[in-house]
Simulated scan of single mutants.
Amino acid sequence: MEIDPKFNFKGNSGSDPVCPSALGYFFPAEFHKHEATWLSWPHKEASWPGKIESIYPAYSEFVACLAKGEKVNIMVADAAMQTFACEQLYRAEADMNQVVFHHFPTNDAWCRDHGPSFLLNQDKEMGKAIVDWGYNAWGNKYPPYDLDNLIPEKVALILKIPCFKPGIIMEGGSVDFNGKGTLITTEACLLNPNRNPQHSREEIENILRDYYGVRQLLWLKDGIIGDDTDGHVDDLTRFVSENKVVTVVESDKKDENYQVLKENLEMLQAFRLPDGQSLDIVELPMPSPVIYENTRLPASYANFYIANKHVIVPTFRDKNDEKALDIISGCFPDRKVVGIDSWDLIWGLGSFHCLSQQEPAYL
């Protein structure tokens, strides 16, 4: 079956006869080999008030690490922003032969949530596709977001691949995948009335099955304190293989996150995959509370990014940094685990996973 890449498939309730899953498309796990990583260059001062200049060394180190194993596509507003980005990346000694700039203006840097969601097809001849989920800046918290909302379709047009439009709000950080038909998410985010109040839980599940090509949804409840996304799962629990997850836990019973993370762990222990197998669960510590200007920030080691050759983990100048790196290293024997200081980045309420979106490769 041939698909004209100029045609946008528009779904409505998840029962669209030309939805991606009906055509054989699916969303691979992040640990699947990448063709590239997509980023939106940080420029919005309001996201890092008083600190935006301090984030560029860590961000550029992140890009330099990515470029050692895959192409890095970076969206910038114009030539001036590209020149500034190049200056920062040269200082980090990034391989600029691996970096490609696209003049696509954005409102903010959180490409995990506003960027393209890439699908592969069981039939390689069908090529890739993109799902263009609606984006409203986590429940209309940070307008404007009109430029961000245009990004998936722009990427689909330059790559000349199909672009599906389910017609609901969805953020990449709210879901995680094992690549074999299972998706994990949270009720706090996906069922929040500031996203899709017109849809029931069952309707949302059907849309996710149809447009991500999954069969099973596992629901956790709440996210960590300080997370302005209403509980993104990429700060909580991540698939590191088809049946293994790492999940953050809090050992201090007086900490605000203790009970929430304890309940999520108990839910994970009760979950079963479609073949009846239980999840292999690896517990990951939380850092000590990171507080800036009397605000507790959503610091979590779970916000790591799995690249082709590396796993890039945020660190927080904390006693648990090395322990977290060691635990994550044990989950990825075929990749080098790299910790990059996220002390300033986290003032923007996100870290490396929130900033990036993978483009999978056909194996």
Score class of each variant (00 low, 15 high):
D234G: 04
D176M: 01
K262F: 06
A188Q: 15
P274A: 04
V233S: 11
L190V: 10
V249G: 07
H232W: 02
F239M: 02
K262N: 08
L220D: 06
K253P: 07
Y258W: 15
L208K: 13
Y211R: 07
D235F: 11
L261R: 15
T237P: 06
Q259P: 00
D228E: 12
V175S: 07
T237N: 08
W219Q: 09
N243F: 02
C189Y: 11
E250T: 08
G179R: 05
K262G: 01
P193G: 03
I204F: 00
T182K: 10
E263M: 14
G173K: 06
Q269S: 09
E203K: 12
Q198C: 06
K262W: 06
F239K: 00
H199D: 00
V248H: 07
N243D: 14
V175D: 04
Q216G: 02
E266H: 13
V260N: 12
G231M: 02
Q259M: 08
T185E: 05
R201Y: 02
V246R: 14
R209E: 07
V175P: 03
S174A: 15
G223C: 02
D222H: 14
L236W: 01
V249M: 09
V214K: 03
V246I: 15
Q216S: 05
Q269Y: 04
G213E: 03
L191Y: 07
V214C: 08
L273K: 05
T186L: 10
L191V: 04
F239D: 00
S251E: 11
E250R: 12
R195E: 01
V249N: 08
E242A: 11
E256V: 15
Q198A: 13
N264T: 03
L218V: 00
P193Y: 02
E205L: 09
T186Q: 13
P193T: 06
Q216N: 10
E256A: 14
N196W: 00
D234P: 02
G226V: 13
F271K: 14
K254D: 09
L190C: 15
P197M: 08
R201L: 06
C189V: 03
R215A: 13
V214Q: 03
R209F: 05
K244M: 13
S174Y: 11
V246S: 11
A188E: 14
